[in-house]
Amino acid sequence: MNSDTAKGNWKQIKGEFKEKYGSITNDKTTEAEGAFDKLVGEIQEKYGKTREAIVEEVKTW
């Protein structure tokens, strides 16, 4: 497990929290940020890429 994989795992947890917190407070921006952080974390954990590389790749989708 490299450091990017470990960071991805942490980002998933943080993203889930932001998603739930945004839902509770009815803050759609926080909820959307949480969903995005969770997605980036899952990709980072699976492929071991850096966050910056993933964000650039997602922007091209």
Rank of each mutant, 00 (worst) to 15 (best):
M1H: 08
M1Y: 06
M1F: 10
N2V: 05
N2D: 10
S3F: 01
S3A: 04
D4E: 12
D4M: 07
T5Q: 15
A6D: 02
A6W: 03
A6T: 06
A6H: 08
A6N: 05
A6Q: 08
A6M: 07
K7T: 11
K7P: 00
K7N: 12
N9Y: 09
N9A: 14
N9F: 12
W10A: 13
K11Q: 09
K11N: 08
K11S: 09
I13K: 10
I13F: 10
K14D: 13
K14P: 02
K14A: 15
K14V: 15
G15M: 02
G15W: 01
G15Q: 03
E16H: 03
E16T: 10
E16F: 06
E16N: 07
F17A: 14
F17T: 09
F17E: 09
E19G: 12
E19Y: 09
Y21H: 04
Y21L: 11
G22Q: 01
G22R: 01
I24C: 05
I24E: 06
I24K: 06
N26D: 12
N26H: 09
N26E: 11
N26W: 02
N26R: 09
N26S: 13
N26I: 02
D27I: 00
D27K: 01
K28D: 06
K28H: 03
K28F: 01
K28A: 12
T29H: 01
T29M: 01
T30S: 05
T30G: 00
T30W: 03
T30M: 09
E31F: 00
E31G: 05
E31P: 00
A32P: 00
E33V: 02
E33C: 06
E33F: 03
G34T: 08
A35N: 11
A35H: 07
F36A: 14
F36W: 07
D37G: 10
D37S: 15
D37W: 06
K38T: 10
L39D: 13
L39Y: 08
V40Y: 07
V40E: 10
V40H: 10
G41R: 03
G41L: 07
G41T: 06
E42T: 14
E42P: 02
E42C: 05
E42F: 05
I43P: 04
I43H: 03
I43E: 03
Q44K: 11
E45Q: 14
E45D: 10
E45R: 14
E45K: 15
K46M: 11
K46C: 05
K46V: 03
K46D: 10
Y47R: 15
Y47I: 13
Y47H: 14
G48V: 08
K49F: 04
K49D: 02
K49E: 03
K49H: 01
T50I: 02
T50W: 02
T50G: 12
T50K: 13
R51L: 05
R51P: 00
R51G: 01
E52A: 14
E52P: 03
A53M: 07
A53F: 02
A53T: 13
A53H: 04
A53E: 15
I54Q: 08
I54V: 14
I54W: 06
V55F: 01
V55W: 01
V55R: 13
V55C: 07
V55Y: 03
E56S: 14
E56A: 15
E56P: 00
E56N: 14
V58H: 02
V58N: 04
K59Y: 04
K59N: 05
K59V: 05
K59H: 02
K59A: 12
K59E: 07
T60E: 13
T60I: 10
W61H: 11
